[in-house]
Write a protein that binds this DNA or RNA. Structure first.
Length: 421
RNA sequence: GGAAAGAUGCCAGAGUGGUUGAAUGGAACAGUCUCGAAAACUGUCUUACUCGCAAGGGUAACGAGGGUUCGAAUCCCUCUCUUUCCGCCA
């Protein structure tokens, strides 16, 4: 959530930025400001009251020691009304703090100044395109057909075992998954990330920390009996590693492979065909905890990392700067990576790299010490590097030939084969 | 699933009602010593909110929430979590 101090100091700018995200409840900002002012007033009153009570308590202790019991008893009466008053103030304060929090969790992050205005994905800005778009003739097959032909994965089998959207990978299809995961992890480690294997379920506090709760619980699978959530991305457990910590040295770089579970309620049509959108998929995620002054350089670094992966996989891609309307709630700046999938003739999103600035760290209380030894909130960033299913889809579609599917050179050491026949 | 114990500062670990935000030890940081290091010695060392231009005040926090009391880390209640043993099991 946004820092209250920031809202206090830059209310006009905050509002103007939020408008870029098409956030139209700008009155909430004014509301939160007046609540905050009130909060401080009550806080002061309460503190003063408690101070008086403490002074009296000390005096009574002293009187007891001197054996002046009657005097002590007299002083006790002085405390009664103060105590009553403090109790009321305290109730008031908790109420107002809750109100402030309830509002703040409903306000999205302020977008960076370079975020384009816009409401729909069409208004995202293409900032780069790499690679030649393959022009296949009519015989080019979609990945779901290629999967059948080469026995790579089976969606119907997944339906039987679990339900729609839970693919069963088989043979070279399974090996390809494993190869991609290892490839992505190795590249991340080379780039200085520490590999972690996080829990695949998280508690409520963790889900709140990265912003999945309270709003997006419908997106996650929930284990009601234990109050756990299946992770929709490794970002959730990995970023929470540093929750409530004061970090000594920045940046911290984590890379994690994990399966991801998403309910994807309401999706339909060509979007969910084949591997285009599934409920369980594998992903390698990179996370960085960065100094506020350096987080945008870090964002660039992460973008380059993702680019190099796609280049090594020989997949044509483009990078989009998401417009205000298409960005996620908690992001300040997001770049999406899309890969062109030859047979479907469309761009598929395979990665999303974002800077959350202090939006997540404020929830998670991840801090560092600045030059003056003051604690400050860090910036958090993360990106997919990469999500597998659509990578597989486009690998199959783009690298198909009449006599099989060619594995990109960089991946061959991991697959152990150079062609799927 | 059954039984027991426990939750205190970065860590270990004292503390059962009154200058205890918290002994002691370790770690860390700074300094003295040293060519340098180690050792030794000295000092520093929680966080959040709030008032103040600042210097510096105030308040809160000993798992969480409530209660008793003039006063609670210390007593009472509820909840959560952790550990150990047994059972089951990859």
């Amino acid at each position: 959530m946004l820092e209250i101090a920031n809202i206090r100091n830059n209310a006009a700018e905050v509002k103007q930025r939020l408008a870029v995200k098409n956030f139209n409840e700008l009155n909430l900002i004014d509301e939160v400001l007046s609540l905050d002012e009130n909060r401080r007033k009550i806080q002061k009153q309460l503190d003063d009251n408690l101070n008086k009570q403490n002074v009296i308590a000390k005096e009574i202790g002293e009187l007891f020691k001197q054996g002046k019991k009657e005097d002590a008893d007299k002083r006790k009466n002085d405390s009664a009304s103060l105590k009553e008053e403090s109790k009321q103030l305290d109730t008031e304060l908790s109420k107002i703090e809750e109100d402030i929090k309830n509002i703040l969790v409903r306000v999205p992050n302020t977008p960076n100044s370079i975020v384009p205005k816009g409401k729909t994905p069409e208004e995202n800005e293409v900032v780069k395109q790499w690679g030649d778009i393959p022009l296949f003739h009519e015989t080019a097959q979609a990945h779901w057909d290629l999967a059948k032909k080469y026995q790579l994965f089976d969606l119907d089998l997944g339906v039987k075992i679990t339900g729609a959207g839970f693919p069963v990978y088989k043979g070279k299809g399974a090996k390809l998954q494993r190869a991609l995961i290892s490839f992505f992890l190795d590249k991340a480690i080379e780039a200085g990330y520490l590999e972690v294997i996080p829990p695949h379920m998280v508690n409520e506090a963790s889900a709140f920390g990265t912003g999945q709760l309270p709003d997006k619980e419908g997106q996650m699978y929930h284990i009601g009996l234990d109050k756990f959530y299946m992770i929709p991305t490794a970002e959730v457990p990995v970023t929470n590693i540093l929750r409530d910590e004061i970090v000594d040295s920045l940046p911290v770089k984590f890379a994690a492979y994990s399966p991801c579970f998403r309910r994807e309620a309401g999706s339909y049509g060509k979007d969910v065909r084949g591997l285009n959108r599934v409920h369980q998929f594998d992903k390698v995620e990179i996370v960085q905890i960065a100094h506020p002054d350096k987080s945008y350089a870090v964002l660039d670094e992460m973008i380059s990392h993702v680019e190099s992966l796609l280049q090594q996989l020989e997949l044509p891609y483009r990078i989009l700067r998401l417009c205000g309307g298409d960005m996620s709630f908690s992001s300040a700046l997001t770049y999406d990576f899309e890969v062109f999938s030859a047979a479907q003739k469309r761009w598929l999103e395979v990665s999303s790299v974002s800077n959350f600035e202090t939006y997540q760290s404020n929830r998670m209380k991840i801090r560092f010490r600045d030059e003056n030894k003051k604690t400050r909130l860090v910036h958090t960033l993360n990106g997919s590097a990469l999500a597998l299913p659509r990578i597989v889809a486009s690998l199959l579609e783009n690298h198909q030939s009449p006599d099989g599917i060619n594995i990109p050179l960089a991946l061959q050491a991991y697959t152990g084969f150079d062609k799927i026949v």
